[in-house]
Design a protein around this nucleic acid. Structure first.
Length: 558
RNA sequence: GGCCCGUUGGUCAAGCGGCUAAGACGCCGCCCUUUCACGGCGGAAACAGGAGUUCGAUUCUCCUACGGGUCACCA
């Protein structure tokens, strides 16, 4: 067989040579140890947690080592492509703070190793397809879909391994005349790899996460180029990651079975394969068993799910970082205030098994993240979120920014900040009493428990109104609380909780009861952050209005 | 079915031949406290099973079970 002739026949339009491409995309000349990696998603319009896990790992490894992170769009499957998906993808990744040094972007490609969209790299793949063909390492196959499924059926019947190999590889050694005839008739063809492997042999391989691996050699003549001339993932991966000088490939471990083929392809092209990190899948609990998160069934796999649920980017980021490197949690506790990027990420800490996605943990991490932010930061995030998902709240929340920020600042800062909410979606309810528009007093519901009798509650409200009307409300917390105690004592409430507990029969109640009545009257509910701060921020006029409203409900007429 | 990966408390996980087998989330109890949230202290809770190797196995080997993945002109 004259392979060179076959190559010229199949790839008449190829003009470049492998040598020229090598020169065009030379080694990057980065310092020793610098990692070059990439995210290589396919534009299906669905960005998920798996993408992010992989992206985060690549991002940390590259940027921590002074290397390069690039984005390559794997758009080789025209059938599955969704319009605008590339933009969606890029936006989502940007939203999650994955910054690329080069690659595809909304404005077009950036960088010297492009194009970064595989469909545009067709000519490059063909150079190597031609080379492989000329060397007898690849050949055209004219099997129809029907023929292939017949082969599969027969293999199933005979309990043989599936695939195009051995006697089933019917075009592997056809005379060139047969090929010419098919070509002349305009029959569609694919280019297949001529595998010299055998399932009798094992290949040893070291994965950076999984460790030492012993895999069975590949004996299948896999498709390199599809009938439309576009490469399959396998071929594109090998060519691109070589030419783009990728040093580390991070991907899901569903790729492990095709690793022997990839290694084989690198060898066939005379290239050194990159290092691989195969990440275990993210799982979820389904009844009693774990299973991989599925795009179809699990909305929580989509990144948009977390955005909508109001989890800040940093929460998802830190949660994931903790899953990938469990020592991150300890580090974070020791360093509560420095950016997560200062943490020293190591692939060595990554678990070879899959992880169960733990929403409880995410919430916990998120509470911490939110508690460490300044009121201004939370305000900004909340505005952004509410504008999109809770327009009504957005309106009142942003009407008086300083007011809302003051409300958010209660109990913030210091060693033990409050942790009142895990998501931005919980803030409207948490702050509802700060705005008349969203204030819904629980005491207006039947059977509400004021903790004291309604008469006593009325008395407290009344008294407080009079006091404040006369002297105004105290301007600092201690004075305020002293006043509450003093007033309570006059009404028969013990100013000291401990004392009250030791001899409860001597008092009507304790200062806690007095505060509770004022709290309910002001906030409409029994839980609130520090009451003085709330009143102080709301202002005495607003507080007096709340007192009147509660008073009315309690049967006071003024 | 073939091939491959995995298996430490409910969950996430340290561990890498000798430990009373960390820590975190969740749960329970106590303390702090004008409510709640926070915080502090304490508790219940694990090496899938069986053979080896070894003076000694959570750690190494094999088998079994279970879970997961993969066997496309999808990635």
């Amino acid at each position: 067989m004259d392979y060179q002739k076959l190559a010229d026949m199949l790839f008449a339009d190829v003009v470049k040579t492998p040598e020229e491409l090598e020169a065009e995309f030379p080694p990057r000349g980065l310092p020793e140890g610098a990692v070059v990696s990439r995210m290589a998603p396919s534009p299906t319009g669905f960005v998920h947690l798996g993408n992010l896990v992989q992206g985060l790992t690549s991002e940390r490894m590259t940027h921590q080592s002074g290397g390069v992170l690039f984005l390559r769009v794997e758009d080789t499957d025209q059938k599955r492509e969704v319009a605008g998906a590339v933009e969606t993808l890029i936006e989502a990744l940007k939203f999650y703070d994955i910054r690329f040094d080069e690659g595809a972007s909304v404005q077009g490609d950036i960088g010297d190793y492009g194009p970064y969209r595989q469909r545009q790299r067709r000519d490059i793949y063909h150079v190597y397809a031609k080379k492989l063909t000329a060397e007898g390492k690849a050949y055209p196959c004219f099997c129809t879909e029907q023929e292939l499924s017949d082969i599969h059926a027969e293999q199933e019947k005979n309990k043989e391994n599936f695939g195009y190999y051995g006697k089933y590889a019917v075009w592997r050694d056809r005379p060139i005349e047969d090929i010419e005839r098919q070509l002349a008739e305009g029959k569609p063809w694919v280019l297949r790899f001529r595998s010299e492997g055998s399932i009798e042999n094992k290949v040893k391989f070291t994965d950076l996460i999984k460790g030492a691996l012993e895999l069975t050699e590949n004996d299948i003549d896999h498709v390199l180029l599809k009938s439309d001339g576009i490469p399959t993932y396998h071929f594109a991966h090998v060519v691109d990651d070589h030419l783009m000088r990728t040093t580390h490939v991070v991907r899901g471990d569903e790729w492990l079975p095709s690793l022997p083929f990839h290694v084989q392809l690198f060898a066939a092209l005379g290239w050194k394969p990159p290092k691989y990190l195969h990440i275990g899948p993210l799982m979820k609990m389904d009844g009693d068993s774990k299973r991989k998160l599925s795009k179809r069934k699990d909305p929580e796999l989509a990144l948009t799910f977390y955005e909508q649920a109001g989890f800040p980017v940093r929460s998802v980021y830190e949660y994931l970082l903790g899953v990938l490197n469990s020592n991150f949690e300890d580090w974070r506790r020791a360093n509560p205030d420095i950016p997560a990027t200062e943490f020293k990420f190591s692939y060595k800490k990554m678990n070879p098994a899959g992880s169960l996605f733990d929403e409880n943990k995410l919430r916990d991490v998120s509470k911490d993240v939110l508690a460490r932010m300044t009121a201004q930061e939370v305000y900004a995030l909340e505005s952004e979120w509410a504008e999109k998902y809770n327009p009504e709240f957005y309106k009142v929340f942003t009407e008086k920014p300083e007011y809302s920020q003051a409300a958010l600042s209660i109990g913030r800062g210091g060693k033990k900040p409050r942790k009142d909410f895990a998501t931005l979606a919980e803030i409207p309810a948490y702050l509802s009493f700060f705005y008349d528009e969203t204030f819904v007093p629980e005491y207006e519901q039947d059977g509400f428990d004021w903790q004291v009798s309604r008469e006593d509650a009325a008395e407290i409200v009344c008294e407080w109104q009079e006091l404040c009307a006369k002297d105004g409300m105290p301007g600092d917390g201690d004075a305020w609380f002293a006043l509450v105690k003093q007033m309570g004592e006059r009404l028969g409430y013990c100013p000291d909780t401990k004392l009250y507990r030791s001899e409860p029969e001597k008092w009507k109640g304790s200062v806690g009861d007095v505060s509770m009545v004022l709290r309910v009257a002001t906030c409409g509910r029994r839980q609130s952050p520090d009451l003085f701060s709330v009143m102080d921020i709301m202002g005495s006029e607003a507080v007096m209005k709340r007192m009147s409203r509660a008073g009315e409900k309690l049967g006071i007429r003024n």
